[in-house]
Write a protein that binds this DNA or RNA. Structure first.
Lengths: 143, 143
DNA sequence: GTCTCTGCAAAGCATTTGCAACTGC
DNA sequence: GCAGTTGCAAATGCTTTGCAGAGAC
């Protein structure tokens, strides 16, 4: 974490535990889920501190903040670019095994007045657990 | 709007004006922008009514609710599927002239435990106005 | 010893909701 | 005239922020 020094920042115990928890975890937790995980090790930490550090760690490129459409932020200990899928029923988020489409922005070159910088792709679906629950009573009505 | 009857719903003046305002507008306004546009015609309407109707009109398929990553909801009077681009500086949202990739979900078939239903693709960029302002001092430092 | 960081609590902001009165149909 | 809808205001849920004291280096 050479970057901390460069920015006159410190590696506090709180910051470290938050980073460790995220790195060991591939469930894309929300801030309050991270809060309760970290609190097992640091019972006096505050939610504000969790938010502040998640923002800083994102800026340093150590983690990713996932702002999936219309929902609570989630955080990803894997800082590399990849796509996600969200369960429309329970909100669970997983990685998707699809290589980032690096050329996608080029397809729009000259077709928009914007300077394109990046893109976000998010799949919507139903996770196995929720699919199973929906099976018995498909849709809402039943005979 | 045959759908209203089918759902035991009424075409109130408020609902109608909200729909008209959105149909005449391609700027993808936020709820409070719609609120202030509608208030010119219906000064006593409340923000709650605007939200309630935007939700209903979305469910009826008359408009679209855009839940772009990490920002306020925006609303689109065009109910047909299409992608959007958002200015990372001012938040402006425009349509993107790229045909929806109907086959994208198929690429993941068998590669995820989810049942995939849909996808959201959103481009991030800089609109002409903001690009112009950034020109003088590119990035943050200058030689 | 300095200056960043923390815990706490309050504020902020977009959105939702409970309720009595109102109004489409 | 009934049930869906409205305006109002309060509540909600997530996130950010001000501040004085604590702690990293």
């Amino acid at each position: 974490m050479q970057q901390l020094k460069r920015n006159n920042m410190r590696m506090t115990r709180q910051r470290q535990v938050i980073l460790e928890v995220l790195r060991k975890n591939n469930t894309h937790p929300t801030a309050d889920e991270i809060y309760s995980m970290v609190r097992r090790r640091l019972p006096r930490i505050s939610l504000g501190t969790v938010y502040r550090n998640l923002e800083i760690l994102t800026e340093l490129g150590e983690i990713q903040t996932l702002e999936l459409s219309g929902h609570q932020k989630r955080f990803d200990g894997n800082p590399n670019k990849h796509y996600h899928i969200r369960c429309m029923s329970c909100g669970r988020v997983d990685d998707v095994p699809l290589a980032p489409m690096a050329q996608l922005e080029n397809q729009l070159y000259g077709a928009t007045v914007y300077t394109i910088v990046d893109h976000r792709l998010e799949f919507i679906g139903m996770c196995p657990e929720c699919s199973r629950q929906q099976q018995p009573d498909k849709h809402e009505a039943q005979p």
